[in-house]
């Protein structure tokens, strides 16, 4: 009964066909089957945000989604966002401000921060904190992360469109 199910999806723009067990969550599928290990697995129940990815342009928890549910979806991981250069400035701001230490939360933080900046280009610090409130960082104390997101928003605002 719990036989493998065929699934076809786009991952970072690349078509993928696979046979997956129903119980395999999307985070493990990305990490184990596709070796895209930038998506991290922390709490496995939707609290920590380390596994955040984009599905059809919107952020979701890949630990709370089955790989079979991604049928027909376009999945973007931190590798995709990084390789395309979409978040190069945000990554640079994180580096400059030491907005990461161990780095475990960083992929999820970057994807979530980029999501905020897409929806709200000039967020105040409160809005940044609120949007990132579903992403845990156990190293930085968050101040540097908020600084980096705020600095990126400012730089993007000053850049001619």
């Amino acid at each position: 009964m719990s036989a493998p199910v065929p699934v076809s999806l786009l991952v970072n723009g690349e078509p993928i066909e696979a046979l997956v067990l129903p119980r395999l969550n999307l985070a493990d599928f990305l990490r184990e089957s596709l070796k895209l290990t930038g998506t991290h697995v922390g709490c496995e129940h939707g609290v920590c945000g380390a596994c955040t990815v984009r599905i059809d342009g919107e952020i979701v928890r890949s630990c709370l989604m089955l790989a079979v549910q991604a049928e027909g979806a376009s999945v973007e991981t931190i590798e995709g966002l990084s390789d395309s250069g979409e978040i190069a400035d945000l990554q640079a701001a994180f580096r400059e401000r030491n907005a990461l230490q161990c780095g475990y939360c960083t992929p999820g933080m970057l994807i979530t921060a980029q999501d905020l900046l897409k929806h709200l280009p000039v967020p105040d610090r409160q809005a940044i904190r609120e949007h990132l409130s579903g992403n845990y960082c156990r190293c930085t104390g968050y101040q540097a992360i908020v600084d980096a997101v705020e600095a990126t928003a400012k730089m993007r605002g000053e850049r001619p469109a």
Partner: peptide, 9 residues
């Protein structure tokens, strides 16, 4: 209700 990534699903 929770956080944006949860509210999207």
């Amino acid at each position: 209700v929770a956080h944006p990534a949860i509210r999207n699903r």
